[in-house]
Design a protein around this nucleic acid. Structure first.
Length: 492
RNA sequence: GCUCGUAUAGUGUAGUGGCCCAUCAUGAAGGACUCUCAUUCCUUCGACCCGGGUUCAAAUCCCGGUACGAGCACCA
C-alpha cells in the first residue's frame, strides 16, 4: 500500500543497507603517492555524503604500505587533508595513517599464524603461481603454527630478503576464483633501498602488510560499517571476507561503483602524472591540463560542482564515459549567479569615438542577475575604446550598455545611444579603464596564452568571473585569468 | 584461459512484476526574457542489448547469446 511512494524518483544516494543514523562509519583510503585527482573525488564525495545522511563518522585513511612500486609522497599527506576539507566542506572525523599502525598489523599477523589461519610461505612468486593455477597445495601450507611463528620472527629479524618469503592467508586452493586462493597478506620490502618517506618510519620496518590485509584489519579496528568503493576492489572484498571468517568478525556492508572515463582525459594515473611531472612534461600537480583536484580548483571548478557531478552519477556498477561538458554544466549552474562580469578584449583594436557627444561615464552591472552586486563604471574622458578584432571586422556594432557605432577604419562613429537595429551586441572596454591582461587556456594538452586588454578590477585572487562572451575564468596570483570553460559549448 | 560484474534516449541517471506507450538531468532543435554567444523560463526530439522462458502481467524474475569492464601482483 505504500508502494506508490517507493516508485517515486529517488533523489540523492540510495540508502545504505542496515544503516542506523549515528552508527555509520565510513572511510576513504587513498594512497598518498600524489595529491588527489578527479577520480578520487568520487570516493570523497560519496562517502562524505553518506556521513552527512546518517550523521556518521568519516575516516580519511592513508594506505601508504608500499615504498617501492607506488611510494608515498611526503607532501601528499598534508595536501590530501586540505583537498578533503575543500571538497567535502569539513575535516574528516578521523585521520588514520597505515604506516603508524604497523604494530597492530603485526599483532594480527602473529595471531593469524598462531591460530593457523595463515602460514609463512617460502615459495617464489612463480612457484606459487603454479599452485594457484593448478589448484594444488603449496608445501608450506603444512607448517605447524610453531614453525610459522618462528619463521615470522625471522622475517621481523630481517633474516630473509624481499621475495624469499611471504605470509599467506589460508583459504582453499580449490576455490573457484583463482584470485582468492591463499592470498598474500604480508611481504618484505627493501626499505634500505626504498625507505618510507616519512621520517618517523624510514627504514624502521621491512615486513609490510599488503592492501587486503592492512585494509581488512584496519576496517575492523576502526569499526567501519560500510565500505563504498570501486568495483575493481570486488575480489578484495571476497579475500577480506575470508580473513574475517577466520577471525570471526563481520565484514562491513559494501557497495561498488563502476569505472568512469572522461572522454577528454583518457587514462591518467597518479603514478603516470608523477613521472610526467618529474620528467618536466608538466610543471606541477596544479597544471590546468591535469585532472588533479588542484588543477581543477585552480581553473575555477567549484567544489559544489564536483559534488553535484559525482552525486548525479551515483553508485551504479556500470562502466561509463562522460564528457567534460557535463562537469562544466554543473559548474556554470553553481558559479554563474555569483560570478562578477568582466570585460576582456582578445586581439584588441583601438578605436576613437566620434560623431556624438560622449557621456562622462558608462555603467555595466557587475552581475545582471543580482543588482545588489552593484555596477562597474567606466570614465569616458579619453574617447578611445578597445574592440576585439573579430568584432571590429563586422563594421557596425552595438557597444554593450552604450551605443550603436559604425566603424570607419580606426574611427568608431557613434550612430545612436538607443538601439537602432539588430546589429550584434559586443563587449568592449575603454582605454583608460583597462590594462594589459593575460588569459590562459588549454587546448589539446597545450597551454595557450592570450594577451589582451583587461578591464581594471579589484577582485580577490581566486575569484571566478565570467569574462563576457568568452567564458568562466579564475583570477590567479599573478593577475592573469585562467579559462575554466567557455560560456557556451557551441563551437564557432 | 579462469573468476567476478554490468547492459534504459547522443551522454548520464530513476525504476526490483501491474501506477511505465518509462523519471530526471544534460544535449540537440525551436521560442520567450535579457543591451553577453551567459543566466532564467517554455516547447519539441530521443531509450528498456539480442533470443528464449516463467507469469493473467516483465525494463524489472530465470536461461542462453552478445558487448563492455574488472580481478587472477611479494601495487593501492
Amino acid at each position: 500500500m505504500e508502494k506508490r511512494e517507493v516508485k517515486e524518483r529517488r533523489t540523492g544516494l540510495p540508502d545504505l543497507k542496515d544503516a542506523q543514523k549515528g552508527k555509520v562509519v565510513l572511510r576513504f583510503a587513498p594512497n598518498p603517492n600524489g595529491p588527489l585527482s578527479f577520480g578520487h573525488a568520487r570516493g570523497l564525495v560519496i562517502n562524505s555524503t553518506y556521513r552527512e545522511m546518517y550523521d556518521g563518522v568519516f575516516i580519511l585513511r592513508f594506505d601508504d604500505t608500499d615504498t617501492k612500486v607506488k611510494p608515498p609522497m611526503l607532501e601528499a599527506y598534508e595536501r590530501i587533508q586540505e583537498e578533503t576539507a575543500w571538497l567535502t566542506g569539513r575535516k574528516p572525523d578521523r585521520v588514520v595513517i597505515a604506516s603508524d599502525r604497523m604494530e597492530h598489523y603485526y599483532e594480527h599477523a602473529s595471531l593469524m599464524l598462531e591460530k593457523g589461519y595463515g602460514y609463512v610461505c617460502r615459495c617464489s612468486a612463480e612457484a606459487f603461481k603454479e599452485h594457484r593455477v593448478g589448484k594444488t597445495n603449496c608445501p608450506c601450507r603444512e607448517r605447524t603454527s610453531l614453525e610459522n611463528l618462528e619463521l615470522w620472527q625471522q622475517m621481523l629479524d630481517r633474516e630473509f630478503n624481499p621475495g624469499e618469503v611471504v605470509v599467506r592467508v589460508k583459504t582453499d586452493m580449490t576455490l573457484k576464483n583463482p584470485a582468492l586462493r591463499d592470498w598474500p597478506a604480508l611481504r618484505l620490502q627493501d626499505t634500505e633501498a626504498h625507505p618510507h618517506p616519512r621520517e618517523s618510519i624510514g627504514s624502521k620496518y621491512v615486513v609490510w602488510p599488503l592492501l587486503d590485509f592492512q585494509s581488512a584489519v584496519e576496517d575492523h579496528l576502526q569499526g567501519v560499517t560500510h565500505i563504498v568503493r570501486g568495483k575493481d576492489l570486488m575480489d578484495s572484498t571476497r579475500k577480506q571476507t575470508l580473513l574475517y571468517e577466520h577471525f570471526g568478525w563481520n565484514y562491513p556492508e559494501t557497495m561498488y561503483w563502476g569505472r568512469v572515463k572522461v572522454h577528454e582525459w583518457g587514462g591518467f594515473s597518479t603514478s603516470k602524472m608523477r613521472l610526467d611531472i618529474e620528467e618536466g612534461r608538466y610543471p606541477g600537480w596544479g597544471d590546468p591540463r591535469l585532472p588533479t583536484l588542484e588543477g581543477l580548483k585552480g581553473r575555477g571548478i567549484s567544489d559544489a560542482a564536483l559534488r553535484a557531478f559525482w552525486l548525479e552519477l551515483g553508485i551504479t556498477q556500470k562502466d561509463i564515459s562522460v564528457p567534460l561538458s557535463t562537469l562544466y554544466a554543473h559548474n556554470t549552474k553553481v558559479v554563474d549567479s555569483t560570478a562578477p562580469r568582466l570585460s576582456f578584449i582578445r586581439e584588441p583594436v583601438l578605436c576613437s569615438l566620434e560623431g556624438l557627444e560622449i557621456p562622462k561615464t558608462v555603467s555595466h552591472p557587475v552581475n545582471p542577475n543580482d543588482k545588489t552586486m552593484g555596477s562597474r563604471t567606466w570614465d569616458m574622458n579619453k574617447g578611445t575604446v578597445y574592440l576585439e578584432q573579430e568584432d571590429f571586422e563586422k563594421g557596425s556594432l552595438r557597444l554593450k550598455e552604450f551605443a550603436d557605432i559604425n566603424l570607419e577604419g580606426p574611427k568608431a562613429i557613434l550612430h545612436s545611444f538607443e538601439r537602432s537595429d539588430k546589429r550584434s551586441i559586443v563587449h568592449w572596454i575603454t582605454e583608460e579603464n583597462s590594462t594589459e591582461g593575460t588569459l590562459i587556456s588549454t587546448s589539446n594538452n597545450e597551454i595557450i596564452t592570450q594577451n589582451g586588454r583587461l578591464e581594471k578590477h579589484a577582485l580577490k585572487i581566486g575569484t571566478i568571473v565570467q569574462l563576457e562572451r568568452i567564458g568562466y575564468a579564475r583570477l590567479q596570483e599573478d593577475g592573469s585569468f585562467i579559462l575554466c570553460h567557455e560560456v557556451s559549448v557551441e563551437e564557432k
